[in-house]
């Protein structure tokens, strides 16, 4: 069978989802006898289950044939965040309250300056533009 538009043709989406889930689980490191038994029952429950499983397995199996094309597979720049176990714990300084207070004061001062500064005289243009410029200026 080729990897073409007939793969899983006429097979319901939910059956394809179940089949791909089974392929992924059976590909895992720990596959229990109980899991294999449940899989066997599922596989024989309906022809579409078997079709979906066989045809998606074909896709999965053939990925390995691309080992000689490794350079043609796009690099994934996945940003990996540290897990909770390995995340560095940030030490909170007990004297850091004054830094927060200073930051708040600076923000308030910035707003006050912006609000109280005289509006620059602009010879032409709408009032809306003038206010927008003034507002932006206050934050420069």
């Amino acid at each position: 069978m080729s990897l073409d538009e007939w793969i899983c043709y006429g097979i319901p989406e939910e059956t394809q989802a179940e089949a791909s889930g089974w392929i992924a689980r059976l590909d895992g490191d720990d596959v229990s006898a109980e899991m294999r038994s449940r899989f066997s029952l599922w596989l024989d429950a309906d022809p579409t289950n078997r079709w979906a499983y066989e045809e998606l397995s074909l896709v999965w199996a053939r990925v390995a044939t691309l080992s000689d094309r490794r350079a043609q597979i796009h690099e994934s720049k996945v940003l990996i965040f540290p897990t909770p176990d390995t995340a560095p714990v940030q030490k909170v300084s007990k004297h850091s309250w004054w830094q927060s207070a200073a930051a708040i004061l600076l923000i308030v001062a910035g707003f006050s300056f912006a609000w109280l500064s005289p509006v620059p005289v602009i010879e032409s243009g709408s009032t809306e533009n003038t206010q927008a410029d003034h507002f932006l200026f206050g934050f420069e």
Binding site: W60, R62, V63, L66, S67, R69, I73, S76, K77, V78
Partner: peptide, 26 residues
């Protein structure tokens, strides 16, 4: 032809998905 088709399909995957495919199968 299948290889080319599969390569294009793999390259169309979301990056994390593609990375898992590469780690596992390649």
């Amino acid at each position: 032809q299948d290889k080319q088709s599969l390569l294009a399909a793999i390259n169309s995957l979301p990056p994390a998905c593609r990375q898992v495919f590469v780690f596992r199968k390649i």
